[in-house]
Design a protein around this nucleic acid. Structure first.
Lengths: 341, 341
DNA sequence: CCATTTTTGATGTACGTAAATCAAAAAATT
DNA sequence: AATTTTTTGATTTACGTACATCAAAAATGG
């Protein structure tokens, strides 16, 4: 049988009240006594029953998700998954609030973060925009012992406790190898389509992609990056223009959102031009395009996993509990038309 | 605030004792009263607090894992993950027992399953060998209301509650497309290396692989399947022999274990023969081979995820709780040298 | 209608922890 | 040594549920 607080009290030769004071860091315990109790805790291998503790405390975890507004499929899906998590709120003892901020708007994000000070919050998850001001705002919250988790896009150099998202450099490298190998030694031009080079995850994907291309596929030349701003119409016209101007394009890597426009542009030139295409984010559009052969591979991060992982990590961090690191690693999904979920 | 049993009692106009009788299906409640209580439960949206219930019951989940003996890396890893789960036993209120049976030994598996009848068990996870006798044994356990989950290898047509493993047909199809695309329209022979065609997951992988090859890559010819029985030495000699006899081999798909032997055989012919290779299961050997370019892609199922998922599902099933289906879908991991974890 | 059986209510204890109160003991201060 | 302050103990209530017991009420049978 698992040891309880009573066993600690007996082992340490103190009362239950003293054990409680030590466990919950309440004042009024001499150092020697505290050490005696801590020794007993270690010796009998006591582990606090979190379920019982939460019951006694009537614990709920007030969590905040800060996500960008915008209607691209991915962010839409992310908000959907947070809403799904809200449906499980009572079971999971969470109380989730969503705060929406305009995308890439640093002052707005900082303001949203700063507004959370002093509130009763068990954890904050945010889609980070990579800027020193944001880093500082996050660090201020962390210094107040509030668990902070970055979601989808990380904030390196900050004190955030955890990042729930994929390794974007690895994603870019993987895209490069897939494209390079699928093109099987052919020579030609490649177009890279990004949302915006202001976003860290897009920059990192490009960085990984370029590195592998340079190292291993010298016959493939990278054309200047097209910035579609995650907007389908703009993306479509950019791609159409590029395809008609450069007849040497044999492959496309789309590392951002707004793939609806890309797919439309591809279908327009489809029978004549043979193109190998790798894109990010599995949506209804990319799924259909993968199935009908318009695109060749989709790299994906599972927003549902990211949200659930963020919640688990915030709760565990709030309780000072360990997390199963392996379980919380967000994987890069590679989808070909054969392994779609 | 979340409604409690007291709220049900008040809403239904009955006593706490009666609510308890209804909730825990104890006898001594008239049908009309029971229906009144059930209506109240639905109406106020009561959800049992599983943590509190488990605390009151002193609930532990005695779980049984039935896994094959054998020293290939994958099964070794699987047993390792079950042992990791045992370390979390007290926290997760589980009491896990491992039963090892010889691989592909149907009577032994059936005997192990039959021996579990009448024992106090909250769930059984087994690596199923696909046979009618096993199906019947599983169905007998399920009919006694014991949650049964298949692990890694499924048992279709049985009454098992859940399968914690990948879609092996999709895995085979994916391998075929990767290999086909990586070979970029070249013409030649392919060797498929399996453990044993007696195992369902291997058969399914081959089935998926063959289907896509026939449909989409007609220039690639499949040679007869080599059965390495998941044994490195045997695998090495089989592959070496095949490579020296058939000079037309340009690709290999290894869908079972024992890849240590395959890798050795590949290294022996490495500089001269150019081969595209896709294998299953990420181990230290396949990881190293991926990094040094001996193999081109590794398909993987994460044993840790499978074990943790199986445990969650068994617990939830034992409690009559719903599972997050999406969370319990075991994904096929595709690893290139760039996205290794 | 009475006796019997079934159903319901009232109540208490338990699970492991949190948190509060008040008294008692020990230590520190004067 | 007397006083004050700090530390410790003893005890109680609570969280939401499970489970047991006994009495009371209602339904059923004859």
């Amino acid at each position: 049988m698992r040891p309880t607080v009573h066993d600690i009290a007996a082992a340490a030769g103190v009362s239950l009240a003293t054990v409680d004071r030590v466990l919950n860091q309440r004042p009024g315990v001499r150092l020697v006594t505290r050490e005696k109790v801590e020794a007993a805790i270690r010796q009998i291998g006591y582990i606090r029953d979190v379920a019982a503790a939460n019951l006694a405390k009537g614990r709920v975890y007030p969590l905040v998700f800060i996500v960008p507004t915008g209607d691209n499929s991915f962010m839409h899906g992310l908000r959907f998954e947070v809403n799904q998590a809200m449906l499980r709120a009572s079971i999971e003892r969470t109380d989730i609030r969503i705060i929406e901020v305009p995308p890439f708007d640093i002052p707005a994000l900082v303001a949203a973060l700063d507004a959370l000070h002093g509130q009763d919050i068990a954890g904050i998850a945010l889609v980070a925009t990579d800027a020193p001001e944001v880093r500082a705002a996050v660090d201020r919250l962390v210094s107040e012992r509030i668990p902070v988790v970055t979601l989808v896009s990380d904030l390196t150099g900050s004190a955030r406790h955890h990042y729930a998202g994929i390794d974007n450099i690895a994603a870019g490298r993987t895209a490069a190898r897939l494209l390079g190998r699928f093109l099987g030694g052919r020579e030609g031009d490649l177009t890279v389509l990004a949302g915006s080079m202001l976003v860290r995850d897009h920059r990192e994907r490009l960085q990984g992609f370029s590195a592998v291309m340079a190292e291993e596929f010298p016959k493939l030349r990278l054309l200047p990056v097209l910035e579609g701003r995650d907007d389908p119409e703009r993306t479509q016209s950019l791609v159409s223009k590029a395809l008609s101007e450069s007849k040497g394009i044999i492959g496309i890597y789309s590392l951002g959102a707004g793939n609806r426009g890309l797919i439309a542009a591809l279908k327009a030139v489809r029978p004549e031009r043979e193109l190998t295409v790798v894109v990010h984010e599995l949506t209804q559009h990319t799924r259909a395009a993968l199935l009908d052969g318009t695109i060749d591979a989709v790299l994906n991060q599972d927003a549902g996993h990211e949200v659930r992982s963020a919640i688990r990590v915030m709760k565990a961090t709030a309780d000072g509990q360990a997390v199963i690191a392996d379980q919380e690693r967000i994987r890069l999904d590679i989808f070909l038309k054969d392994n779609l979920p």
